[in-house]
Design a protein around this nucleic acid. Structure first.
Lengths: 198, 198
DNA sequence: ACTTTTCGTTCACATAAGTTAACTAATTAC
DNA sequence: GTAATTAGTTAACTTATGTGAACGAAAAGT
């Protein structure tokens, strides 16, 4: 039995799409387990198999790739209502291409591969929801490639300030720098230029 | 009736995955029309609706985004056995985020939205194939974001030489530069450095 | 064939971001 | 509460790529 309100964020998240009805959502939540993670713990470790997909119910995390030189590149920050995990690793059994680490203590609802696939099999509405979700993620990722290429670091930062103030408020600067693909010193310089009116 | 051999490349392309059988493939091809395009013609125009998805049977094309400053960024080159079109525009009815233009005279098999959705509806194996295809495209795009960020232009070019010699052989330098996200002059400089052993 | 346009290269100079290092402020650990 | 660590800033200098211009080679148009 679901304690009252446990999945309220998830329910609202699904409700936005109008694809799953209450029954579908209840069915889906029965496949989930609750996991609590403390700051600095890992949900996924680069190089290891990613065994589950998670829904962030509170706190926040950072997904980042570490290259051979040891430099990190942050792929995304995950807050309330974000889905986390390396789906490539999850599906193909290949090593994760990035780590997902906790920045603020989290509560995550997760499903391992068996449960996830049972849910896809048994809940057609969830299958449909997920298919659309993958398509949208693909579209967003394609757009990100365009943006990454045509925008300067300063343009990216100004856009972040405008479109994702939550990131700028909650996330330490050096992680934002790594999200923008620059060094912390460069972000400092950019912020100074902006504050001086260029 | 299919003229002998018309769809042989497409059949081989599908055969690689073992998802569609001969009957499925025959059913799918019945939804396609053949289109021939001359150099410089457009398959998709940025800002306009992308009305069809195509399979490249011969020739090659270039998908590129043009930003407000008029700078172009090449997203991909499409050769034999590539699928082309802006799926976001195709599905959502939004303006295409990039153009697709012919570099070498092409033969393309195409389906408009009605035909494509009929095929997805009527051929479950095609639906499955396509679902996997979207997932893999998403994965590849995610990997491309990582690569774009962590590699220098020279590293990207050396990787292209190694992994996609066809691109380097068939495609004019200035398009390769725009694919790498740099100016033609910079690519020239990089090539010179490489030839001088740095 | 001849002309025009496009392509690729080179150069000198400009700019954005990386590097190293020093210093202070903030946070965390004990 | 204090020491140790991590985070953010600044500065001087380096490096990669952009910019504008010139030139010859190649390709395309007639």
């Amino acid at each position: 039995m679901e304690p009252f309100g446990t999945f309220s964020n998830l329910r609202e998240h699904f409700a936005e799409t109008n694809i799953l009805n209450d029954e579908d959502i209840a069915a889906f939540t029965s496949f989930l387990t609750v996991k609590r993670l403390k700051k600095k713990e890992f949900f996924t470790v680069q190089g290891e198999l990613c065994r589950s997909i998670g829904f962030v119910n509170s706190g926040c995390l950072r997904a980042f790739h570490t290259d051979e030189k040891g430099d990190e590149f942050t792929m995304y920050f995950a807050f309330l209502n974000w889905w986390i995990g390396d789906k490539t690793s999850f599906y193909s059994g290949t090593p994760s291409r990035f780590s997902i680490q906790v920045l603020e203590d989290c509560e995550v609802f997760q499903a391992d591969k068996t449960k996830w696939e049972e849910a896809l099999d048994q809940i057609p509405a969830f299958e449909k929801w997920y298919r659309i979700k993958v398509r949208k993620s693909y579209e967003a990722t394609q757009q990100k490639i365009i943006d990454t290429q045509i925008e300067s670091a300063e343009e990216k930062y100004l856009k972040l300030l405008k479109n994702s103030p939550e990131i700028v408020q909650r996330i330490p600067q050096h992680y934002i720098a790594s999200y923008l693909g620059i060094k912390p010193q460069s972000l400092s310089r950019i912020r100074k230029n902006i504050s001086l009116g260029r």
